[in-house]
Design a protein around this nucleic acid. Structure first.
Lengths: 262, 262
DNA sequence: AAGTGGTCTAGACCACGCA
DNA sequence: GCGTGGTCTAGACCACTTA
C-alpha cells in the first residue's frame, strides 16, 4: 500500500463531500488558500492540481473572485425520434422539449448556406462527387443561453429555391416541406451518437465548462424507398440534456408510458 | 485583440496539427523539453499546462517514459435496442456487437447479488419501500480489456431461485428467462442517456484516459401491459463505442438499411 | 481596496520503463 | 543509465469582480 499524492487526497476528500451531500450543488468548496492550510501544503500549485481534477470531472467550477463552487445542472429532455411520433410535426422538436419546462423563453438563430458537403454528409446522403448540399444551421437558446447546435444538410438540387432555405422559422416545419418535395413522408431515422469532449470552438459557442462532454448526434432521415434525404448533426452538451428514446419489439405498438424526471 | 496565454498557444498549435493530420493518430507529439525550447518558455509547468489541456480534451495521452502521443480509437457499435430486433435473442447483444469485429475474443465477468435497490432502480421498477431487488452485474471484455459495465436489476420475488440469478452465461438469454417468468415478452424499452465524465472508480475499472467521457445508459424494459420489469444501467465509454439506434414513423416497418462505419 | 483565481518562473526530487 | 513524465516547492505578478 503506497500513499497517494497530496493533490489526489485533496481531490478525493472534496469529491467525497460532494457525493455524500456535505457540499450541495451550488455550494462553495474551500478556497485554494484554505486548502493549503488544512492539508499543510506549501505550494498553491499542488492544491490547484487537485482542484483541476475536480473541474475536469465536471464536479466544480471556478467563479472568480468568489472561489470554487459545486456545479448544478438543469437537464432538458432531448428526444432524437420525436419527429416520427407526431403527424404532422406541427411544432419543432425543440419547442416541444421546452414545453416541459416552465417560464423559459426559447429562441433560435438560423442561417442557411450552400456548401461543399463534408465527407460525413456526402457519405450519408450518398451524394456524387462535386454535388452540392444546402446547410441549415441553427443555434437553439433558452433565455438567450445556447442549448444545442443543429446543422441539417440536404442535396441542394432538392431544396434550391424552396421554403427549406428560408433563413428563419418555417411554420409548417422543414420536414413537412421536405415531405412535399420528395412526394412522401420521412419514415425512418438512423441515429449515431459519438461521445467526446467539445472542441474549443464548440465550448465557446455553447459556453461549456471544462468538465462537460458532448454527444455528436448524427441523424439520417430516409424516405419510404430507403433513400437518405437529410443528415442532421447535433451537438448536445451533457450538462443540459438527458437524451431519451424508446424502442419496441417489431410489430408492437408503443404503449404510452409517462416519464417524469428522476 | 489581446494575446492568449502561452500555454493556450502551445495547445492550439498542437491541436491544429492533430486535426489537420500533421500528427496522425498514434504519432508522438513533441516532449515537454522540446516544447520549452520551441516556444521559448522558461518553466516546465507552463508547457505541462498546455499539454494537460489536450489530455483533457481526449486528444493526446502520456506514455511514460516515451512522451505524449495522439490517441487512436477503435469504436464498436453499441445498439441499445438490439434485444428487440431479433426473436428469440439467441445471442447476447454484446457478442452480437463483437461479430462485427474480427479476431477479438469477447468475455464477461458476471456477478449476481441481492440488493437494497437504489432510488434510481426503485423509481423505475416501481418497487415498494423495502422491497428487494436482484442485481446481475457484468463487465464485458474484448481480448481481456473492459469495454463496458452493465448492471441489470429486477424485483427479487420475480427471479429468486431462477436461472436469471445464475452467475454465469445463460444460454437462452436472460430476457427469454424473464419472458417465461412474466408469461409474456418484453415489448417496450425506454432509454435515458446521461453524458458525464467517469467517476474515479469507473475510470479505474474501465481503464479510461483523462479525456474520455461516458454515457450512463439507463434502459427500462416493459411487458405488454406496461409494467416495468427490468432496469439496466450501462456505463458506455466514449472512446470505444458509437451508440446507434433506429426510429420509424408509427405504423411503419423499418427498412433494413445497412450501415458501415464512417 | 481586497481577495480570489489565472499565469508563469526556476528550481528540486522521484518513478518508471526502455536500451 | 538515461530520458521521460509525475509531483512538489516558493515564490512573482496579473486580471477580475464584488463589497
Amino acid at each position: 500500500m503506497k500513499s497517494s499524492p497530496v493533490y489526489q487526497r485533496i481531490a478525493d476528500e472534496i469529491r467525497r463531500k460532494i457525493t455524500d451531500g456535505t457540499y450541495q450543488p451550488g455550494a462553495q468548496v474551500p478556497t485554494e488558500a484554505e486548502l493549503m492550510a488544512t492539508f499543510d501544503v506549501k505550494s498553491r500549485a499542488t492544491v490547484r492540481q487537485g482542484l483541476a481534477l475536480l473541474v475536469h470531472e465536471g464536479l466544480i467550477e471556478a467563479r472568480r473572485p468568489k472561489g470554487y463552487f459545486v456545479v448544478e445542472h438543469r437537464l432538458l429532455v432531448y428526444r432524437p425520434q420525436a419527429e416520427f411520433r407526431r403527424k404532422p410535426p406541427e411544432v419543432d422538436i425543440f419547442t416541444n422539449l421546452v414545453a416541459e419546462e416552465d417560464g423559459r423563453v426559447p429562441s433560435q438563430d438560423i442561417e442557411v448556406s450552400i456548401v461543399q458537403p463534408t465527407k460525413l454528409v456526402q457519405e450519408r446522403l450518398k451524394l456524387d462527387d462535386g454535388q452540392l448540399a444546402a446547410a441549415r444551421r441553427r443555434v437553439r437558446r433558452l433565455d438567450g443561453v445556447a442549448y444545442n447546435i443543429n446543422d441539417s444538410h440536404v442535396a441542394l438540387d432538392l431544396v434550391q429555391g424552396t421554403e427549406w432555405m428560408h433563413p428563419g422559422d418555417v411554420q409548417r416545419g422543414t420536414d413537412t416541406v421536405l415531405a412535399e418535395l420528395i412526394g412522401g413522408e420521412l419514415v425512418y431515422g438512423f441515429h449515431e451518437l459519438y461521445l467526446r469532449m467539445p472542441t474549443p470552438a464548440e465550448a465557446h459557442r455553447l459556453n461549456l465548462g471544462a468538465g462537460v462532454p458532448v454527444a455528436e448526434h448524427i441523424s439520417t432521415s430516409y424516405d419510404a424507398t430507403g433513400n437518405p434525404v437529410q443528415v442532421t448533426v447535433n451537438i448536445v452538451p451533457g450538462d443540459r440534456h438527458v437524451i431519451v428514446f424508446e424502442t419496441s419489439r417489431e410489430g408492437t405498438d408503443l404503449p404510452r408510458i409517462p416519464w417524469g424526471k428522476p
